[in-house]
Design a protein around this nucleic acid. Sequence first.
DNA 1: CTGTTAGCGCTTTCAA
DNA 2: TTGAAAGCGCTAACAG
Lengths: 342, 342
Amino acid sequence: MAKRRGSGRSTINDVAVHAKVGAITVSRMLRDPSKVSPKLRERIEESIRLLKYVPDSKARALASGQNDVIGVLVPSLSNNVFADILRGIHDTVHETPYQVQIANTRYSTEEEDRLISLFVGQRPAALILSGRDQSKNARALLEDSNIPVVQIVETGADPIDMMIGFSHEDAAVSVIDHLFEQGYRKIAFAGARMDPRMERRLSGFRTRLKALDLYDSRREATTQKSSSVSLGRTLFRQLHEQDPQIDAVFCGNDDLALGILFECQAQQINVPEKIGIVGFNDLEMMSAAVPSLTSVRTSRYEIGEQAVSSILRRIKGNFTGPKVVDVGFELMRRNSTKLKKS
Amino acid sequence: MAKRRGSGRSTINDVAVHAKVGAITVSRMLRDPSKVSPKLRERIEESIRLLKYVPDSKARALASGQNDVIGVLVPSLSNNVFADILRGIHDTVHETPYQVQIANTRYSTEEEDRLISLFVGQRPAALILSGRDQSKNARALLEDSNIPVVQIVETGADPIDMMIGFSHEDAAVSVIDHLFEQGYRKIAFAGARMDPRMERRLSGFRTRLKALDLYDSRREATTQKSSSVSLGRTLFRQLHEQDPQIDAVFCGNDDLALGILFECQAQQINVPEKIGIVGFNDLEMMSAAVPSLTSVRTSRYEIGEQAVSSILRRIKGNFTGPKVVDVGFELMRRNSTKLKKS
DNA sequence: CTGTTAGCGCTTTCAA
DNA sequence: TTGAAAGCGCTAACAG
């Protein structure tokens, strides 16, 4: 007598029976009340309330062939960079019928692969991925899936579908040029969590210094450990040991830059006179530090915004823009690199 | 001739036909290969590869009545507090068949309501909510839904289901006691983004100071703006204007504490001699600052971990523990409040 | 404006 | 070990 399966929850059918209408009428009312006469509408609303009916979104997605989920893969949630991007994504998705689903790859390509499969199995409306180093398998899967995809944070050739970011290598070059121009000559690099983007910053650092004939491999301190302020202090000590002559440090992260500032304070090393410091990303704290810290400002919020708006255009079928969008970056010159009086 | 509906993707049926087996055999193989003879297994695997078949998770969830999604609602993604909690959640979920789905309420109760409805409509395996101030409607919805729920970050009476956190009020009291013990007498409070937890910290601050007969309403600076280091600098200036005599500041956030430290450096005010500073949460940077900053350490990672493990036990049916778990907090005494030589 | 019928893609049930 | 039939909760398609 009892239904053979079923969750026990009320279904659209229960509501229909209770309100003495067809199930499809309930369905219509839920999606567009104006398609149902006020009379039935009231009865249905009443039944919904009484039966505590909550529509099942996956049944709807299955039946309609439409999914309102936009999946977002980020390598980290403690990294403020991605927090800002996610804010841009959320704000833009907010006024649409879509919803955001975030997943964390923890900087692991295997995990990214796993999550991409999981998402593809969900048939999301679109997918936002971080970086451009997805595995071959993942690429193939995505390309076959026909799901709109945006790769964010970097630019590069051969996007899976769309791409929004900037060149980390160019950004690093502009940092070196600034330090050089300010008169620093013994420039070091400090990097943590050497993910592909950090590697590209390091690569820009090397290329540019070599071109200036100022490169010295002792002036590099990198680690796979995740970035932190204390780590900045440690890396500075390490650099100082490797070459006591260094006069500036380009940090792959703002955290490290702050750590180096603290270490200099602790050792009574004058910033910017004895040591110039540059960070990367220009988190809010950089301008509030004493002295204020030079950093590369990246348009993280904007990247999130644009990722979503490209997706929306793509879904609506009026995506015309270029596949790869470069949002650029801006070097924020502050007191931590003010050697020259200008 | 063409199917009337359908996405164009290959389905389990396509695979079954191709491999000349029943659909259910494919289904079985996907879930437990050992239930299918090696011969068929091979054929099916081959067909899956050829047809690029990817199982549809929502169809599976619908048919089986089981959902592997654990939903997590957080008020913010830029707040490191939640980043750490999410890390704990992810790490614990990782070795289970479940997957995490994060949503962001942006400190808005309406948004939280909307998202809770959305989640309930998905019939997730469980839900993790932040704080204990859900709307009445949301509570009712959740209670009717029968979904395991954990409220995190705070403790309190009357949990929806389970609850894991600590008392923000008690934590504030312990801060005041420490400052008092160190000899500070004109203690101020700086708070941003006055969410319910921040309000409870403020309330602890007031209660305790009143008990000590040291309360002065001029020594409070609060704002709805979101917390930042620069804001810390601003709030300190404001406090100083409201009462130039203050000798210590309890900050509702570590960001603010760092900002106050910077402002003191800029104004050449000695910390801890002239001003004692205490933060809240004990983010990593606090111990790396110069001078190191006193803060209240909260077990964020652990909260995430325990939230998930309670859920797992609840799902397996062997949840016996108390409904409300207090993970406590720890005051990390550092140089920014070292007035007394001890 | 409203309803009937036939799926969406998968799994449960029951049988072989 | 394998499969056929029925159904999960909802909606598209086509009537009326």
